[in-house]
Design a protein around this nucleic acid. Structure first.
Length: 435
RNA sequence: GUGGGCGUAGCUCAGUUGGUGGAGCACCAGGUUGUGGUCCUGGGGGUCGCGGGUUCAAGUCCCGUCGCUCACCCCA
């Protein structure tokens, strides 16, 4: 082959395309029924939009180019900057809260590996203009709704929820130096990937004073409702920490009311690397073989200000089609491919082929996906083709179409075949076969 | 950026101590002269990723290179 596919991209042949469409359809369906509106933006943005948010080092991870006019652009690697830009531009006039979703195609110039390609589709759910945890709860609920929608039981996935604000307040109360927060976050975020010994070793390497070290190790243990309960002591007497604690307690109360508590769990080990998260953070995991996060998000407080907008806070999450397909395939939950052919029209003999074309055209006019064989062969061969195309129904046309206006209608799944009038066929090609 | 694994037909792969490259599936064409998804026969298709070396002889051994893949780093 002279040309091959660029690294980290995919060709969507019909079967793969059907899978992609199915995933996207589920995303859209769940978004809409939870009251979110769809938006989209340009596939490339000014490079500085990403540089301002994430710093210079981001540029090497972007596909970027310079226009003839000298402007530097980048193909979008994520949707949040575009969202922030769009909301900031209209912030005054938009009814709050803004509940929007998008399914953008994104590109990142990183080295591909399992679950991470250079081009992929991402589902973004965001709520802006509402500071309370109700918005966070609703985002988490949407994620849970999706996993349930595609057939996962509450035992097959878990959404781990934490509050960075609470964590920061606890660290502040314990007099951890603010410049050490980021290092502490990084260690805590690795907690679930390490055994207890390796975790403690990493904590030791931070060289924190004894009390702070013990606190950090106990934070790594804080999981589930009892883990949240255990933190009560760590927040008492500190107004900010108590307030944050009450927030996340209320969040879990809301999740309970929404019927999502069975798949949600408090976990201090979820911090997420993103510098811009300021409040609630969460990540979803499959409980089977794949231990990787399959979806993640949280509250971002200052993002709109970064793109020149008002100090409006937002909360949301994202997940990619690559990871979703991975985890659903592992659980054998991707629907089998069925082609879009409703009716395959066959001639009983070459003389009636013009009638086949005529009937096919009429079926198409009724908005049915209908087709026929290009080759004039026996009925058996044409049925074979219909079968290969996964046609649901086959219509066999013979001279009786002219003399009596009837044809044979065959249900390919059951094999049942009946004679029907052309009028009744056009009215309903999927009519159940008369006994 | 670092490290491991793998490159043979469209796909999945076999290929013996080096001796003129195969199978299954898929595709195409025929057969049963009005009934498929499970029949039979035949066919097309590969400079064995690419380049160099050793050898009378390389898919096989050696070196280089490119590509794919997995993990790490990173993760918006």
């Amino acid at each position: 082959m002279k040309f091959q596919r660029p690294r980290g991209t995919r060709d969507f042949y019909p079967e793969a395309m059907a899978t992609r469409n199915w995933i996207v359809d589920q995303w859209r369906r769940v978004s809409l029924r939870n009251g979110f509106e769809e938006y989209d933006g340009p596939i490339f943005e000014l490079l500085d939009l990403y540089r301002d948010k994430s710093g210079d080092e981001i540029v090497s991870e972007l596909f970027h180019f310079t226009s003839r006019g000298g402007d530097a652009f980048a193909i979008r690697p994520e949707m949040t900057p575009t969202l922030a830009r769009m909301v900031a531009a209209q912030a005054q006039g938009l009814p709050k809260p803004v509940k929007w979703f998008s399914i953008p195609r994104l590109c990142r110039a990183e080295r591909p590996q399992r679950g991470r390609l250079r081009e992929f589709f991402q589902w973004n759910i965001d709520i802006l203009g509402e500071d309370g945890v109700l918005a966070d709860a609703e985002c988490i609920l949407v994620a849970a709704d999706f996993f349930r929608q595609v057939g996962l039981s509450d035992q097959q996935f878990v959404i781990k929820v934490n509050s960075r604000a609470l964590l920061a307040a606890i660290l502040e109360k314990a007099d951890v130096r603010p410049d050490r927060f980021h290092a502490v976050y990084a260690v805590l975020d690795k907690r679930d990937k390490l055994d207890a010994g390796a975790f403690e070793k990493m904590v030791e390497e931070l060289k924190l004073p004894g009390e702070q070290r013990d606190l950090l190790i106990s934070l790594g243990e804080a999981k589930g409702s009892s883990g949240l309960e255990d933190l009560r002591g760590a927040v008492e007497g500190h107004a900010g920490a108590e307030e944050r604690y009450e927030e996340i307690r209320r969040l879990f109360e809301l999740l309970e009311t929404m019927g999502a508590s069975a798949c949600c769990r408090f976990d201090m080990g979820v911090v997420r690397g993103l510098a811009y998260y300021t409040g609630v953070v969460f990540e979803a995991f499959g409980t089977g073989g794949l231990q990787r996060a399959i979806c993640g998000g949280g509250r971002y407080g200052q993002l709109l200000k970064k793109v020149g907008g008002p100090p409006m806070s937002g909360t949301g999450f994202a997940t990619s089609d690559v990871v979703i397909e991975d985890v659903l395939r592992e659980l054998d939950m991707i629907p089998v491919y069925v082609s879009a052919i409703d009716i395959f029209v066959i001639d009983a003999s070459p003389e009636v082929f013009d009638d086949v074309i005529r009937l096919t055209t009429q079926l198409r006019a009724k908005d049915h996906a209908a087709t026929f064989s290009y080759k004039r062969q026996g009925v058996g061969k044409q049925l074979k083709q219909a079968s290969a195309k996964h046609a649901r129904r086959v219509v066999i046309v013979d001279e009786k179409m002219r003399t009596e206006r009837v044809v044979s209608l065959k249900d390919m799944a059951s094999g049942v075949q009946t004679e029907v009038s052309i009028d009744s066929l056009l009215a309903d090609p999927f009519q159940s076969a008369a006994p």
